[in-house]
């Protein structure tokens, strides 16, 4: 395991493209988190024009709700697509450069090869989650009046949920990379699916006359991203009647985890059957 991960890191750590995309990702992530409060409050100001009793200013960086709010903003498709693209590039590069052939000839099994990529996805998910956790903690400490330890940790389970969310999302990218093998094609189809096909399909599925029920919750990307469905802003619940989660529950993770298992399984079978 350690050997496979070390091997994978040797391939990646001096790869400039990797660092550029990771840099862009954290740039977008940070801007998303910083702009979140502005966006939410400008929206509240807008709402206030139509309400008899104006709503108070929302502080999204308050413990404990900050866990839920910021993991929500961190799981916006447009931001998450960056690490997913890295995964696709790292996988399809191996086919483009035919290095997967070289790896196998040299004495790696296809299974070990897939495992090394999975281990890297696990590590990347973990690193991003830890960095986000640290960022949330710092923002929370500086923006809230902490009264007790329990106030800080109450909703911190959302960060574990975010880890599962990110991992499941990256597994979808892993799937696209190994199935299509071509960098341009895999990125194009993945982006198309995540940003256009699934959102349109879930919009259509919500038309009552189609009787598709809550199917949109079960689509692979939605199932993952809906683990943190809304930020914890009281008006969403009270005025708009949305089902806002109270706690991050690992129970909800079963569907995305099931998807991950199935997608990984398909990749293993396809790779075993197909020639390199």
């Amino acid at each position: 395991m350690i050997k496979l991960l070390r091997l994978e890191l040797r391939k990646i750590l001096t790869y400039k493209t990797f660092w550029i995309i990771i840099g862009l990702y954290f740039l977008f992530l940070a801007s998303g988190i910083i702009l979140a409060e502005l966006i939410v409050n400008s929206w509240v100001t807008d709402m206030n024009k139509h309400l008899p009793i104006p709503l108070p200013h929302v502080n999204i960086y308050f413990f404990p709700n900050i866990w839920q709010n910021l993991t929500f903003f961190a799981s916006i498709r447009y931001i998450l697509i960056f690490p997913a693209i890295i995964i696709i590039i790292l996988i399809t590069n191996e086919f483009t450069y035919k290095t997967i052939r070289q790896n196998v000839i040299t004495g790696m099994s296809k299974k070990e090869f897939l495992l090394s990529k999975l281990l890297f996805i696990l590590l990347l998910s973990l690193c991003i989650t830890v960095i986000l956790k640290l960022g949330i903690f710092i923002l929370g400490i500086t923006h809230s009046e902490v009264t007790s330890f329990s106030q800080i940790v109450t909703k911190s389970s959302f960060i574990s949920v975010f880890f599962v969310l990110l991992f499941s999302f990256l597994i979808i990218a892993f799937f696209f990379g190994f199935i299509f093998r071509n960098t341009g094609l895999a990125i194009a189809l993945f982006t198309l699916y995540v940003l256009i096909i699934e959102p349109i399909f879930s919009m259509v599925s919500k038309i009552p006359s189609l009787h598709l029920g809550g199917i949109s919750h079960y689509l692979p990307v939605n199932a993952a991203l809906n683990l943190v469905e809304y930020p914890y802003i009281p008006i969403l619940k009270t005025i708009m009647g949305l089902h806002v989660q109270e706690t991050g529950s690992l129970m909800d993770c079963s569907i995305p985890m099931l998807y991950s298992v199935v997608l990984i399984g398909i990749v293993f079978v396809v790779m075993n059957r197909k020639d390199l």
């Binding site: 400039k16 493209t17 052939r101």
Partner: peptide, 13 residues
């Protein structure tokens, strides 16, 4: 040890 077809290595390494 084998050399098959073209040399396949990571170009950025």
């Amino acid at each position: 040890g084998s050399v098959i077809e073209s040399p396949n290595f990571y170009p950025y390494l």
